[in-house]
Simulated assay, not measured.
Amino acid sequence: MNNETEAVDAVEAVIRQTVAAWNAGDADAYGACFTADATYVTWVGTRYQGRDEIVRSHAALFRSFLRGTNLADEIVAVRFIGPDAAIVSSNGDVVKGGKRPEDAKLMKAQTYTIVREADGAWRIASFHNTKRKALMERISFKFAPETAPAAA
């Protein structure tokens, strides 16, 4: 196995760890996937700064609005911007009501910046989550086709 393959595996493992922690409702394990100074932006635009704030807010969310939910996350691309940093694009969503994550319609576009820290562990330094507006995309692509991404 080469170094790049190992790095991709390690980066993807961080995403799997966040999913497992979320699905367990474990805010501490979820927060452990982030750097101490991580930036976290939710789909509604709330910005959290630092692991402590991510843990605190998710503990409250897992006790209330997000209780019993599952996280679905499908990695679209991993791009290294150096030996110790990668940008991960994914599609994801929160699954409620006993639905299976693999059956979820993934309506959120997510961007992670994942870094290898001094201890050798890969962690999320930045996360941004945006809810897709499929109707607005279709309208834009219809009236200005050049706005559609090549992969669309």
Rank of each mutant, 00 (worst) to 15 (best):
Pro149Leu: 07
Thr69Asn: 12
Ala150Phe: 14
Val41Arg: 12
Asp84Ala: 10
Lys131Val: 11
Val94Ala: 05
Tyr112Pro: 05
Thr130Asp: 11
Pro83Ala: 15
Gln49Tyr: 13
Ala86His: 10
Ile15Gln: 08
Thr130Pro: 07
Gly68His: 14
Ala121Glu: 12
Ala10Val: 05
Gly82Ala: 07
Asp37Glu: 12
Ala77Trp: 02
Asn23Arg: 04
Thr147Glu: 11
Val41His: 10
Ala38Gln: 03
Gly25Gln: 03
Ala27Asn: 01
Glu53Tyr: 10
Cys33Phe: 05
Ala13Phe: 01
Arg123Phe: 11
Thr111Pro: 00
Leu135Gly: 06
Ala85Ser: 12
Thr46Asp: 15
Val95Ala: 11
Thr18Trp: 02
Ile124Met: 09
Lys96Val: 06
Ala72Arg: 11
Glu4Phe: 03
Arg16Leu: 01
Ala150Cys: 08
Gln49Arg: 15
Thr35Asp: 06
Cys33Asn: 11
Asp93Met: 00
Val94Arg: 09
Arg116Ala: 07
Phe127Tyr: 10
Thr35Asn: 04
Ile81Leu: 08
Leu106Lys: 10
Val115Asn: 05
Trp22Ile: 00
Leu66Asn: 14
Thr46Met: 14
Ala86Val: 06
Arg63Asn: 15
Gly82Trp: 05
Leu66Trp: 14
Asn3Ile: 15
Arg67Thr: 12
Asn3Pro: 07
Gly50Asn: 08
Ile81Thr: 08
Ala24Met: 00
Ala118Phe: 01
Ala125Pro: 09
Lys133Ser: 14
Asp9His: 02
Ala121Val: 11
